[in-house]
Amino acid sequence: MQPAPLLLLEGVRHGYGPEGPAWAWPHLELAAGQSIACTGPSGSGKTTLLELLAGLQTPQAGLVACMGTPWSTLANRERQRKRLEHLGLVFQGFELLAALDVRENVRLPLRLLGYAPSDFDVRLGELLERAGIPNLARRKPAALSHGEQQRVALCRALIHKPRILLADEPTANLDAENAEAVIELLLHAVHDDGAGLVCVTHDRSLITRFDQEWAVAGFQVRAGGEPKA
């Protein structure tokens, strides 16, 4: 029997209000160890798609399932717990907590899960090392550059080894070097930990690094192609 995909989107129609445009996405799925680049022009619905996949929005019609369980069948508390446990989210604006230093920001999901953060010190050290920011552990977000903040946000999404990674334009506003480092971190989690990744990006030069591309345009998604060179 084939294992359920990490994320499954089936016959989804979604829009903002009765007068607004409605997206129609017939079938999309993300498997373990798969990396997907989600591309499309601004306003085409990439972020909405990501939020539907993360269970942050409920589609007007159709099904979105996470690891075999439709988000809509879960109570609010269960949905939050599932997202916290199995999803690693990277937001467009980093969204680090200003009161916490780098180390504490990265450990945040562990605290929310009720784990003792000190049990993950080795993983924390590895992640910061891999992200190239081991010397920034005690700094507050306000003292970091955009690139550094984005790396911290990535480490935060990865610290608890989530099965699914959803990243919303993680390379926006970053120079080529920082963008490359960020993508490298994400793909490392896919290859080493077997996570599934959906990454929204505008950067055509990075798309070839992913297994597949979801091109969002005209309220449709065209899934397919083998972008990897």
Partner: peptide, 16 residues
């Protein structure tokens, strides 16, 4: 508000 929304989006329990 932004920080509090982030906590909810990450999966903090309702009412956190």
């Amino acid at each position: 508000a932004g920080e509090l929304r982030t906590l909810a989006r990450m999966g903090a329990r309702p009412g956190f």
